[in-house]
Computed example of a mutant assay.
Amino acid sequence: MLDDTDRRLLRHLQADPAQSVADLARASGVAASKAYKRLERLEAAGVLKGQRAVIDWRALGYAVEVSLRVSLDKTEPRAFDEFIAVAREVPEVSEIQTFLGRVDVRLTVLARDMRHYQEIYRSRILTLPHIVDVEALMHVTTIKDVEALPL
């Protein structure tokens, strides 16, 4: 599906997503028009899903990150859908993942401090529907955080 030119473009785009198409083309060794057409094709094929700003939430005063492993009531047919619909509405929940196994859902919660986290946990998390069990894992440090693929 991807040829060497596509891989070069994607490698350079991952390294610096804010660069212009002309700079990306130059770094990849292709004409700007060819780079533009390739990027359009990759986007149409769903390989490129867009560009985004990455904001450091710590710089905005959020010092606490907690991963919550949630087990839901599996006897309730709508438990997943209802839980996720309400969890999406909690502004401090930055990520929701579902799993197969003992843990059904993992939520990442961001808070300014422990008092703020405790408020979120008591007033927003524990009120979510169909929870059977919650395990909290306090985030200490990130060792590796890479979104780029080895192309």
Rank of each mutant, 00 (worst) to 15 (best):
E43A: 12
R38N: 05
L100E: 14
D73C: 02
Q118M: 11
L9Y: 10
A79N: 03
V134T: 12
P150W: 00
Q118N: 15
H12N: 15
Q97K: 00
V90G: 00
E147V: 05
A111G: 01
L107N: 14
E147L: 08
A45I: 06
R69T: 08
A32R: 15
I84W: 06
V140D: 02
A22R: 15
L149R: 12
D113V: 00
V132F: 00
D73S: 03
Q51E: 08
R11F: 09
K74S: 15
R122T: 11
G46K: 10
W57V: 06
R26V: 09
H139V: 02
G101T: 05
L42C: 10
R58N: 12
R112Q: 15
L48R: 11
S33A: 13
V93D: 02
V70N: 04
L107D: 02
A27K: 13
L10D: 04
E95C: 08
A148C: 03
I131E: 08
L2H: 08
A59K: 14
E82D: 14
L107F: 09
Q14E: 14
D3F: 10
P129R: 07
V134W: 01
V70K: 06
A87T: 10
H130V: 13
L2A: 11
P91V: 08
L126T: 12
H130R: 13
S94I: 03
L13Y: 07
D133A: 12
R69D: 11
T142H: 05
Q97W: 04
A35T: 10
E92V: 03
E43H: 14
L107A: 13
K74C: 08
A27Q: 13
L2W: 06
S20A: 14
R115G: 12
E82S: 12
L72G: 02
A85I: 00
V105K: 02
A15K: 12
L126A: 03
S94G: 14
A44C: 10
K74D: 15
V103D: 11
V86L: 13
A85K: 14
V66A: 12
V30I: 11
I96V: 15
V140W: 06
S33K: 06
L128H: 01
V86H: 09
Q97A: 06
T108L: 05
A18E: 09
V86F: 03
V90E: 00
V47S: 09
A136P: 07
R7A: 15
E82I: 05
R88L: 04
R52E: 00
F99E: 01
G50N: 09
M1S: 14
E95S: 13
A136H: 08
L10T: 02
R8K: 15
I143R: 03
K144F: 03
V86C: 05
V47H: 09
Q14Y: 14
V109R: 02
G61N: 07
L110Q: 01
L68T: 00
A44G: 14
T141W: 01
A53D: 11
E95V: 06
K49R: 15
I96N: 10
A22E: 11
D113Y: 00
I55N: 03
G46M: 07
D56Y: 10
V64R: 10
Q14T: 13
V140M: 05
S71F: 01
R38G: 10
A136N: 10
Q97R: 12
R78H: 07
V134A: 03
A32P: 11
P91D: 04
L128F: 04
I125T: 11
